[in-house]
Every structure is written in C-alpha cells, then in structure tokens.
C-alpha cells in the first residue's frame, strides 16, 4: 500500500497537477508574487530559464548575492528546474 503511494508520487509529475514542487511555496515569503517595483523581483510568471540561470549563478558565486547564494545551494538542478517551471506558470 505504501509502496503504491510512493510509485504514484514518483510517476505523477507535480507540475501536471499544478501542485507546487518541494520548496516552491517558500519563495513568496520574500518575493511578492505580483507587486511590480518590489525590492525583490516578483517570480510568478517569470521566465523559468532565467530563474534556473540565476539560481545556478548564485550557487557558483558567479552572481553576487546577499542571501540567495546560501539558499540556492540547498537545491539540486532538478529541484531548481521544477520550482522555476512552477513559478513561471503561476498567474
């Protein structure tokens, strides 16, 4: 029974259900999804490629940051990709 759940969770992509992938909902704690001109860039509807590139650069230190370097290091490429795709599809 529990194995069945595990398989379901693995085979049904989170995005297909529009369920936020792990970590994605925490972003809006700082990044106001929709207010233009906010200090932190709004991420809802943001191009996913740009989010992925920014996160990679934060992780390697190529892009200067105050806190995003420390946060980006907590996510794998796959996780970052899933979060970026989800954010880009949010209204």
């Amino acid at each position: 029974m529990s194995a069945a759940f595990a398989i379901m969770a693995l085979t049904v992509p989170a995005m297909a259900q529009n369920v936020a992938p792990p970590g994605a909902t925490a972003c809006s704690g700082c990044h106001d999804p929709s207010t233009p001109g906010a200090v932190f860039p709004p991420l809802h509807g943001y191009p996913s490629g740009e989010i992925v590139a920014a996160m990679q650069d934060f992780r390697t230190g190529q892009r200067p940051a105050t806190v995003m370097d420390r946060i980006a290091k907590g996510f794998t490429d796959e996780e970052t990709q899933a979060i970026a795709s989800w954010l880009s599809q949010q209204p």
Binding site: F5, A6, P22, G23, A26, G29, I71, K73, G74
Partner: peptide, 29 residues
Amino acid sequence: EAPAEPKLINTCYSLVAPDYGISVAGVYT
C-alpha cells in the same frame, strides 16, 4: 493521497542599526 516530501526555507533578518542588517538562512528537508 500521500503527501509529498517537502523542502522548506527560512530567512531571518536582524537589524543591528537602522542601516545595518544581518541574516541567517537555511534550507530544510
């Protein structure tokens, strides 16, 4: 349904002076 394994973030800012901020952040699973 079985809930998905989450990942969480924390970021805490502290002010040492009005124009002097410091932070601690973490990612959790």
